[in-house]
Design a protein around this nucleic acid. Structure first.
Lengths: 215, 215
DNA sequence: TCCAATTCTGACCGTATGGTCAGGCTTCAG
DNA sequence: CTGAAGCCTGACCATACGGTCAGAATTGGA
């Protein structure tokens, strides 16, 4: 039963690994609670219960409720930005925007809670991530606008306003996460099946791609 | 100075009129606070301050925070449904869906707080208006789906999935209210001007109407 | 004018919440 | 093996919140 006799363990150490695992468990629990109750309605006790540790211990990892919330929001932002890569290096709008829609729909499907926390944060005036909006997001947006304008100039798509096209992409894809409860209710109270998700993706791409003169 | 000598006043009475005015002031204040802080983050004290009356008096008009919140949500729902009329009695999709987009964009512009409260309510699982979703909204949706299917059958528009088209309409138009802070930040920190709103409307209509094979 | 109904209000209460802390427990380098 | 550093925890505290209440002020019909 001597660990030292076996394969070398990664040098991260049990302790550090445990810490990271606990942190992730807390962040996931917090994401759920913040999504379901909002920042004001969420309680540290609820998050602690869901993460399976005492409230006092939660405060050992995250000093304040705000610090925990900020960590949750930043975690989402990273995922969100990663989908942006889907749009890069594409030949034209059919490929680039199509892939971006696919990527964002997949995020809505797999991280609905994260999307909700993000939406809630922005709706309340972005008290925590205002700087991200003004730097990272603004830069990213400007870059994509250029790409779209180039595609238009090259005659690869219809001349539409690039900013409003981006807003439409965000709105439509995130709607499937933020309003999933409404969608499920209108779907007879049932979650969307894999086939229904595929149909949703196809419908969104069909309308938007045709809407910008592609396909 | 005798009121009785003049024209007959509406039989509503000063008292009743005052009561209704106070109620509306409270509802508007509550809408703002709920939109900015969420249900959990809103406090009766803040709402009372914004409405300009003592907290105890607020409780005279609305017994509990939940009752006040419910009144706010119902008030929004009515406005929301009224926009639905824009889609009725239209010859075809160009007219009907175009008018619906215009109406919903106008609501986003004039009632952003209402839209946010609605979005927040749905995001949190619709604890208060679940019955509306299952009755009024479901019926309304079914009716519009029929209309769209008829238009498709008559060859007036491309064959798209009606439900997902409706989701796209809701998502896109409401985005301009719910995410107005993000849009304003990307707009250089400035609110949209009348001209910019017109451009937004035109862009949305252009892409969606072309997307469904109209125009 | 009078008085009953309605509206308003400051002071108060119980509870729930975010956060603290002293001290116990576990891990691991030397 | 040992002890210091890191991790965990029950009990506790101050505060802020939703809601109550007794009674004052106002209104309007008779």
């Amino acid at each position: 039963m001597n660990d030292e006799s076996g394969v070398e363990r990664p040098r991260i150490g049990r302790r550090e690994a445990q810490r990271q695992a606990t942190e992730q468990a807390i962040l996931t629990a917090a994401e759920t609670v913040f999504a379901e109750a909002g920042f004001g309605g969420a309680t540290m006790q609820l998050i602690a219960d869901l993460a399976g540790l005492p409230k006092a211990n939660l405060h050992y990892y995250f000093a304040t409720k705000e610090a925990l919330y900020r960590a949750v929001v930043e975690r989402i932002f990273v995922i969100w930005l990663r989908a942006a890569d889907a749009m890069d290096g594409a030949e034209g709008p059919a490929e680039g925007i199509g892939a971006y829609i696919d990527a964002k729909m997949e995020i809505s499907r797999r991280h609905p809670n994260g999307s909700k926390v993000w939406a809630s944060e922005v709706m309340h005036g972005a008290p925590v991530i205002q700087d991200y909006l003004e730097t990272t997001l603004r830069d990213w947006t400007a870059g994509r606008v250029e790409v779209i304008e180039r595609w238009i100039a090259e005659g690869k798509m219809a001349p539409v306003n690039p900013e409003h096209l981006l807003y439409m992409l965000w709105a439509t894809t995130q709607h499937y996460a933020d309003f999933n409860h409404q969608i499920e209710t209108l779907n007879g109270g049932r979650r969307l099946t894999a086939a229904e998700w595929a149909k949703a993706k196809a419908s969104v791409k069909q309308i938007i791609l045709r809407g910008i003169g592609v396909v």
